[in-house]
Design a binder for these strands. Structure first.
Lengths: 172, 172
DNA sequence: GGCCCCCATGTGATCTTATAACATCAAGTC
DNA sequence: GACTTGATGTTATAAGATCACATGGGGGCC
């Protein structure tokens, strides 16, 4: 089931960053990096948590919690919602995955550093998601917050639109 | 039920804009303004739609679709989810209400103009929501989008944190 | 007037997403 | 070896959203 569910939106040609890359390498690299960070910070990257991260890295797109749960079941883990949600809670609490609020779905973090306020570009045609950086506190929003006395702790920044690949397709 | 459900998060003192104001006046004004805009654009502000907008203006905070549905039922309208969702679809399509993705909830638009990309500040302690403007396409996000060839059509910008009132309370 | 079409509304059923509550279990501490 | 803590597993249920189909009201048209 894993394999035929992998690219429901038209093929692998528009992965997370809107570009091709050496995927196996990037998965391994990301996993290793997260393992190292967990070791350093004394976090327990247990089998379920590691598997969820690995699945998200492998699929390289936003997955709903229940899609993840299906994959977990296939991999021999528990198959009840809390299993997936707890792993996702842990991973997103520590910045290893992000929730895409607009899609009620999750992606592996594709950004190197630790502290970052991610921003996402979501293609409404193929559902591809790319992560980038934002600095919302620096713009109009930050100004409004300061003026109002509002303390920003976290920001959700998601742009919806059309990814480069789908722009080309639409023109054709 | 309408009245006791009105301020479940600690009282009316921190409404939409984190500040006091003449609420009756602001509701009437907003309703009239939306009516005028609908008339001008040939949009049908039907009784259900008008009621939903009025409820959101009156409560002056983010309400979930089912909370709205309860209020609609109390007001004698249909009580099945599509009733609320259809009205909300209409209202948000035309920018009269906004969905807060982070809360799966809806607020009446508190911004005058027609074309705007709203941004929100959400207090995690009292759930108050304030609307402001953002220009996400101008900052780091816009730059990344241009570089990637991504066409931004719409943005979700939501800041989570602590509102001025709750900052004071927390200090005390 | 009578007909038709469009759009909005109402309703039942269903689907998706998320959490509550409680039992078990393994690792670490004293 | 008993005790605590955090992770996992399972059942049940809450909360959010949509599908499919029936009804009904208001224009335009003849």
């Amino acid at each position: 089931m894993t394999s035929e569910s992998q690219f429901p939106n038209g093929g692998p040609e528009v992965p997370l960053g809107f570009e091709h890359h050496d995927h196996d390498h990037c998965v391994d690299h990301a996993l290793a990096s997260v393992e190292a960070r967990c070791a350093r910070k004394g976090l327990r990257l247990t089998p379920v948590r590691r598997k969820v991260l690995e699945l998200l890295l492998q699929e390289h797109r936003a997955l709903g919690a229940y899609a993840i749960l299906d994959l977990l079941r296939d991999a021999g883990f528990g198959s009840q919602p809390p299993v997936a949600y707890r792993a996702l809670d842990f991973l997103s609490e520590h910045g290893f995955v992000h929730k895409i609020e607009r899609l009620n779905a999750f992606v592996a973090c594709s950004h190197p550093g630790e502290n970052h306020s991610p921003a996402f570009m979501i293609c409404r045609l193929c559902d591809a998601v790319a992560e980038t950086q934002s600095a919302p506190a620096k713009g109009a929003l930050g100004e409004a917050a300061r003026a109002a006395g509002f303390l920003i702790e976290r920001t959700v920044v998601e742009a919806e639109g059309v990814c480069p690949t789908c722009v080309v397709k639409a023109d054709a």
